[in-house]
């Protein structure tokens, strides 16, 4: 059972994989990923794939817009992990 911290770590790892040169240490949990990290649709797709491979959680395409910040993404994953909240 993943704790929120573990989910957060997984989100940052997935972000690190698609944006290896980004400085994630200074990334605020509430900053827009698309704006702060300049993520495009390919990056978002990569993020979803990374999260799927790390957590097994399948974010459907219609929900990509809900992954706006690190906090949003962690919350979404927490809500959709096996076993629910």
């Amino acid at each position: 059972m993943s704790t929120t911290d573990e989910l957060r770590t997984q989100v940052l790892e997935a972000l690190g994989a698609i944006a290896p040169d980004a400085d994630l240490a200074t990334l605020s949990d509430d900053a827009s990923l698309r704006d702060e990290l300049d993520l495009d649709s390919m990056d978002m797709q990569g993020l979803v794939v990374g999260l799927y491979e790390a957590t097994g959680i399948d974010v459907p395409e219609r929900d990509y817009g809900k992954l706006d910040t690190v906090a949003d993404t962690v919350a979404y994953l927490a809500a959709h992990r096996p076993g629910g909240q």
């Binding site: 979803v48 974010v59 219609r62």
Partner: peptide
């Protein structure tokens, strides 16, 4: 594309680009 992607796991999905 949306219809196609909806049936696929994330690694199989394609983006509009």
């Amino acid at each position: 594309l949306a219809e196609r992607n909806a049936t696929l796991a994330p690694p199989e999905r394609a983006i509009p680009a």
